[in-house]
Design a protein around this nucleic acid. Structure first.
Lengths: 220, 220
DNA sequence: GTCACGGTAGTACCGGGGTACCACGGCCTC
DNA sequence: GAGGCCGTGGTACCCCGGTACTACCGTGAC
């Protein structure tokens, strides 16, 4: 019997998860949490096998909650769920010690099998992310540079992080949103944005967005 | 007995809604749709009382699907659900003929009562949005009439001048530059820009640029 | 005539964006 | 060890962007 704690700030989402999990006879939902703080506390109290963790939550977010739970030394595994398949969440989540990372796009059966996999000590990553995670980790290695497909010279000077920043600028995120969603200080975001503007020759973020579209970094 | 069609691209979300609705003895879920096209087709086939419509869906989005459903003259009511309380969706959704607009933050009971309200002909709007909607509608009433073969619904409500303004915003011009090059006062430009943002559902000019690219008004 | 609408223009206000700095830790390469 | 790059963070400052509200004029519809 696998015991699960559901951490999500949306009541409807929790309801759906609970219904799904309790329809399985090898799973029990011990409790629910509406934010990261609650998740950490209830995990310490209840010692579930798996915490189903949403990333975006008010107060303490899912990533930081994951970090605290895995740092506590408990054998509780964390399976992170997010609405979007944003790489940054995956990196942060896995670095924080999560055992798995799924997008809410998943089929119910995938979630269930993901929970079972995580409970038994395996790791699980959403299919669409696996390749990009590998790419990113390969890129992290010193040898990595066979990538001659640099599309546009304007992007050549950007570091990985800066390219990432440009991407989310291209999605219309404000500095505050970038800071929140990438777990950075707003001052750091401003530093990055400033460097992106300088390197791409953009006067402001509007021109940076245009640059992102023109270089194909983001697409309509 | 209220019949409902669930339109959402996320299987887990659909599952949650279905479970919630079918736990009520005055509601029946006729079917589910994973995108806007499916939603329109199944609505025409099944004639549900209410369509529970997600905004973000691949292919045809919830707003456009809503427009087609309400334009068909059926008595089917559309209740739009979105993850975020973004005003732009609300404006566009209600302009498209939706009978209600709720955020997924809502309590399950709120969703249920919302469905009942909509089914009985009432309108329902998420509490946090009501005030802002009223404020916006004091200015310009919903645009009626002229929409026909407009490529993108978000541009439908724009006047010629406003479309022109959006185009140059998409070129990265500042308000000052627009004023100079179009021989206008900067205050006039601001007025136009403000209306463009409201009508396209953009929070700021960055999102307006994205809108311009996504609608094809400007191209990379 | 009057009403609605589009285009123009103004004022006032404020918050976020952008800049200019500086600083520190980690890592890699001489 | 020294230097450089990168990512992170901070402070202080200024200005543009966006909003709210008001106003006038011309045109077309009724």
């Amino acid at each position: 019997m696998t015991t699960v704690l559901i951490a999500d700030d949306q009541p409807l989402q929790r309801f759906g998860f609970r219904m799904l999990l309790e329809s399985q006879d090898d799973m029990t939902v011990l409790d629910e949490a509406a934010n990261g703080t609650e998740a950490v506390r209830k995990t310490a109290d209840l010692r579930p096998d798996v915490v189903l963790m949403d990333v975006r939550m008010p107060g303490l977010d899912g990533i930081e909650a994951t970090r605290r739970i895995t740092a506590s030394g408990d054998r509780t595994r964390v399976l992170i769920l997010t609405t979007f398949d944003l790489d940054e969440y995956a990196y942060a989540g896995l670095r924080a010690g999560a055992s798995g990372f799924l997008v809410k796009d998943a089929q119910p059966e995938d979630l269930l099998s993901g929970i079972r996999a995580v409970a038994s000590g395996d790791a699980v990553v959403a299919p669409g992310l696996t390749r990009r995670l590998l790419d990113a980790y390969v890129h992290h290695l010193p040898a990595g540079g066979t990538e001659s497909a640099q599309p546009d010279p304007r992007l050549a000077a950007l570091t990985d992080r800066e390219r990432e920043i440009l991407t989310v600028i291209g999605k219309g995120w404000t500095n505050t949103e970038i800071a929140e969603r990438l777990h950075l200080a707003e001052s750091t975001v401003k530093t990055h944005v400033g460097r992106v503007l300088a390197k791409t020759g953009s006067r402001d973020r509007v021109q940076a967005v245009i640059c992102a579209y023109e270089t194909g970094l983001v697409q309509p």
